[in-house]
Design a protein around this nucleic acid. Sequence first.
DNA 1: GCGTGAACG
Length: 734
Amino acid sequence: MDRHEFAAPGGTSTSGGGSRRTFLKPSDDHRPRTGPLVMEERGGKAVSGEEGTVFYNNPYTGMAIRSQRARLPIAKNRNHILYALEKYQTLIVVGETGCGKSTQVPQYLLEAGWCADGRMVGVTQPRRVAAITLAARVAEEVDTLLGQDVGYIVRFDDATDNETKIKYMTDGILLREMFTDPLLSKYSVLMVDEAHERTTNTDILLGLLRRIITVRSDLRVVISSATLDAELFRNFFELNETNDQEKNTSTIISVEGRTHPVTVLYTKTSVPSYLTTTVETVLKIHQDEMPGDILAFLTGQDEVEEVCKKIREQSVRLKNCDKLWVVPCYGSLPPREQMKAFESTPHGTRKVVIATNIAETSVTIPGIAYVIDCGYVKLRALNPKNGIETLMKIPISRSSAEQRAGRAGRIRPGKAYRLYPEEQFAKLPQSTVPEIQRCDLAPTILQMKALGIQNIHRFHYLSRPPSASVICAFELLYALGAVDIKCLLTNPLGIQISEFPLPPMHSKCLLNSGHEDFTCSEEMATIIAMLQIQDIFITPSGGGGARHRADVSRRKFSVEEGDHLTYLNVYTSYVDHKRSKSWCDENFLNYRGLKRADAVRAQLVALMKRFGVRMLSSRGDIGATERITRCLVTGFFSQAARYHYTGKYLTVKEDYPFSVYKGSAVMFSSDYPKWVIFTEVLADSIRDITVVDPQWLYELAPHYYEFGTDNEIAKKRARKGNEDNENNSDEDSS
DNA sequence: GCGTGAACG
C-alpha cells in the first residue's frame, strides 16, 4: 500500500508539494504504520463506575507523524545548504526540533567563511533558555569558551565579546538591536529559529527582515520551521515577481529528524470530563501497555495538580504491575521541581508527566512513548467586547495536536491518545491563530513606530492583525501621549515610553513619577518592577495549615489602598530583611520572583535616569500614598472601574462587568471601594487593584474622561470613535 | 472559599 494513504489528516500538505525545490532523493522507509484497530477494555474497569473510554484507531487516517517526504539527516545536507545560500537569499530549513538544524547550520556557515569579514551569524530563538543552551552546546562542538567565538545575549545576560562570530539571542533582543542598527549591518546571515511558533516578536522580525533583504542583497536569511508553514515563509520571502523560476530568491530544504511513527487513537464518543478520562487512560496504559513513560497535556496548573492527586490515589490499588511515578510540570513550578520531569526513570517504574502546554514547545521531556491529549489549551486573546486581553480555554488546532502527539515518537514508535472523537479533530482549525492576531497590539505597534515604520497598515505582515485591535492600540497610545493625532511617535515621550522593556502604560507611570506633583520615582520603580512578576505570594499546594498560614501572611502585607501599595510593602520589607531567602520562605513570598524584581528594578532605574527622571522617594511623607496612586492613574486611567450593587465592577469605558480576584488586597477591607483602577485581568476577574478618587481620573486624564453625566461620557465616547476613524484613515493615506 | 497557558525586552 502506498504510504501516502496513511497521511495524517492534517499532514497531507506535506506530501505533494510538486513545485517545491528539493535537493534530495526519496528514502526507503517502509516501516509499518498501523496500530491496533480497537483498544479493548482489558482488566481494570473504570474506577468511577461509568463505562471505560474506548479508543480506536482508523488505519486509513491514523497518523504517522514522520513526514512522508524524502529527507536526509542534516549532516548530509551540509553542501546543499551552503550551495543554496550562494544562490538564494532566503532559505527555509524544514525539520522537527532536535534534528540539529539550530546547532549545525551556524557551524556550516562559520566553516564556509560567512564570518570571515568580521560580521556575525545571528541565530534568534523565541525563548531565553533555548538561546543559552544552544550557544553552550555549539561552543562545545566548536571547542571554544562560551562567550568568545560562540556567545549569546538575552535580557540581563550578555555572553559575547567583540570577537563573537556565532551569536544566539532571543528575537526580542534582535528587535531592540534594530533601534540602533536598523539594517543589521553586523550580520552576514540571520537564522530565525522556531518561526512556525509565530510569536509576535518572530512575526515582526520576519516582516522587518523581508524589508531589509530588499536593501541589503548581501544579507542571507535562514528560516527554520516545521513542515506546515514552509510554503508560507518561502512565498513571503520570495522577491522574484516573474514566472522565471530560475530567478527565485527563496527556497526550501527539508532535513530528517530523529522521529518515529506514532499511532493515534481517538475516543469513540466525546468524553464528559477529560480530567477523569486522563486519570483513567493513564491507569489503563500502565496496566496494558509496554514500558515507556507517559506525558499528558492539560490546560492549567489546577488541572495538573488535581489529576496528579487522583492518579496517586488510584494507582495505589493497582496490583501486579510496575510502580507509577507521577510528576507535575507547569511554568510557575520552581525550576528544581520542573527538572524532575527530566530525571531518568528508575527500573521497574513508569514515569507519568502531567503537564500544561509548556511541554508542547518549551521543554522536551525524554523517554516519552505515550501521549494523552485533552484537546484544549489556554490562550491569551483580546476580548472584542472590552478591548482587554484575557486568558481563555479553547480547543487546540490540528497542528498543535500533531505537535503533542509527536512527543510520543522521539525514542521509538509511540502512541497518542486523543480524548476526543476523530470527527472533532477534523473540525479543528488547521493552525493556531498567530499571536499577533489575538493579543493587545499597543506594545507591538509602539515598538514598530520606534523602529521607524511609518505606516503600520502597510507593513508587510506574515499575518495581518485585525484592524479593530490596531485601532484599539492606537487609541491607547494616543491617550498615553505616545503618538500624536497623526499617529506619529511623539518626541520625547513616545520614544522614551517605547524604550522601556515594559507595556506602555507601565512606562508612562515611571516617566511621570519624578514630576513635582508625584515625587515618588523610587516607589514607582518598585511597584512597576513588582508588576512584572506573576506570583509574588506563594500559595502552598498542600491542604489546610500551610495554606492558612500563607493567607495570614498575605493579609499582613496588605493595605486597604490596594495591591500596588501592598506590593511596595512586600518589596520594602524584603529589602529591610536583607533580601533573605529564609525570610521569604517564612512569609510565603516568592524569593526567585523578588530577586527578579530586583534585577528588573535596576534596569528600569537606569533607563529612568537616562531620561532625566529625578529619583525621589516619598517614603514617610504625608500624602505619599495619594501621590503614588495619582501617579498610577496617569498610566492606567483607561483601566478604571466603579462598584456596582451586583457585587461586580463595571469598567468606566465600556461598562464591562468584572469580578474581583479573590486574593486582591481590596478583598481584605471591610467595604468594597467605589472606584478603582486595575492593572491585570484574568478571565473575568480583575487583579492588582488600587482604590482611586474618581476626581483624579478627570483631573489626570482629561483628554480621556470628561466630568459630568453618563450622557456626556457617551457623547465623548462617540466623538472619540470618530477620531479613531480619522486616525485610521490617516494611517491608510500616509 | 477560590483561582493564574507558555514566553520576550
